[in-house]
Design a protein around this nucleic acid. Structure first.
Lengths: 240, 240
DNA sequence: GTAGTCAGGTGATTTAAGTCACGCTTGCCT
DNA sequence: AGGCAAGCGTGACTTAAATCACCTGACTAC
């Protein structure tokens, strides 16, 4: 039981996982103490996990068994980042993939001139990772930074293989997401190559209206591949 | 056996599949005739299929059993298109996905002004489809046209589910391809948004030198999102 | 043959968007 | 309260690339 107490004290976030594994042989005193913390934690975590469960269910079109859910709770760990904290830094290998339960983030590069280019803006119910780095375990060319207080459920490259193998709904979800990404990326390439700044902004307003409420204009401009001045001007014209 | 003969005469491309299914109860005369054609065909087709087998093996890192190969030969059918023929037309649902064994193709849209924009150039050992339309069975916004005499091995949306389920190496390949597409698309978005015409052309020269030999400059220009004049000029500058 | 089409090059001009510079608000920090 | 950085707007100027126009050479069809 020292083991359990240690875990409670040193790595609070792991308590849920480890107490599940060790709960069969507890001493009375330690149990009551651990259970109190466990209760608080599990409530907090459950609400985060519910979002993930719902998301998987809806995306995969398959329901999750109690066992599936337990497995997800073992493999995914909640993590909080303050505003401006980095989820991933350029040059590091992206070892974690996160499911956003609260907050927002941006994925960006910095070019030789020091200009930042936002490649992705992410909100709740989106996955957060540099997939190239995550899949291939190569150093990332991107930075991922929290734009607001950010809460994710994250797992590692090593563990996700288990999850994919053991939870059919998760595998299905993964395949659906890949399809959707491919489609969305294809559209974005088309847009970047063939449309004017104005048309691209119009698309954003139509397809991602929530972006306008959550992200400042300079971020939107960078995401659209525009200078903030150009965006400001075409917003003025669009009002007419 | 009339059935078999009919198939030989009316749909030569299906002979291999159907003779496999019907070969258990042949009459002597018809068999010898059919076998002659079958032999010719199977030789021709095998060489195409070898490219597919090799590709799956190398991409998935798993080998294919004899059964796997047979199943692929049942589900994939060779198809030839002449130069300028369409593999897919805008407005149609993309029911087929093709593996290119010979030739090249372009995927493009036509905007309101009548300008064509090439989104993808494809060569041997690439898959050919509008994935959005193929996965969702919605009308495609793209045209896919053969640029040279084109040979593909193609299957349908309905059949590919079987292939994915029954051949583990194919499923693995599919997942690897999806990852690679996602990565390649991410890079292309980054390039389109942040790099100049010159840098994008430089990237192409480095990453896809074979494109320069196989595709005319106006196609390359369109693929890079440039006018042919701009490409011509920056090629002149690059020579210095 | 000759006409016609197509890929490609190049000059002159236009235009969309970037860059630089400055000002104005708003919220935050101590 | 004062200082200060962030977010946004806007005028003046520059620049990258598109567009328009015309030319050449190669190939194809008749």
């Amino acid at each position: 039981m020292i083991q359990l107490l240690d875990l409670v004290e040193t790595d609070e976030k792991n308590i849920f996982k480890n107490s599940q594994l060790n709960a069969k042989n507890p001493s009375q005193f330690v149990l009551s103490e651990a259970l109190r913390k466990l209760h608080t934690l599990s409530n907090r975590m459950m609400s985060n996990f519910e979002a993930l469960f719902t998301y998987i269910h809806e995306t995969a079109g398959k329901s999750l068994s109690a066992q599936d859910k337990q497995l997800l709770m073992v493999h995914f760990k909640p993590k909080k980042l303050r505003k401006r904290q980095y989820f991933l830094q350029e040059g590091d290998v992206c070892r974690y993939i996160g499911f956003i339960t609260k907050g927002s983030a941006r994925t960006f590069t910095v070019d030789e001139k020091g200009n930042e280019h936002i490649l992705k803006l992410s909100l709740e119910n989106w996955w957060l990772a540099d997939f190239e780095s995550f899949y291939k375990l190569t150093p990332s060319r991107f930075n991922i930074e929290a734009l607001e207080e950010l809460e994710v459920l994250q797992t590692t490259n090593a563990e996700i293989e288990d999850v994919l193998k053991q939870i059919p709904a998760f595998l299905e979800m993964s395949s659906v997401i890949n399809q959707n990404y491919t489609i969305a990326n294809q559209k974005r390439i088309e847009a970047a190559m063939t449309y004017t700044a104005e048309e691209r902004y119009g698309d954003l307003v139509r397809n991602y209206p929530q972006f306008l409420k959550r992200f400042p204009q300079n971020m939107i401009a960078s995401y659209l591949g525009l200078s903030r001045e150009t965006l400001s001007r075409l917003r003025k014209n669009a009002l007419k």
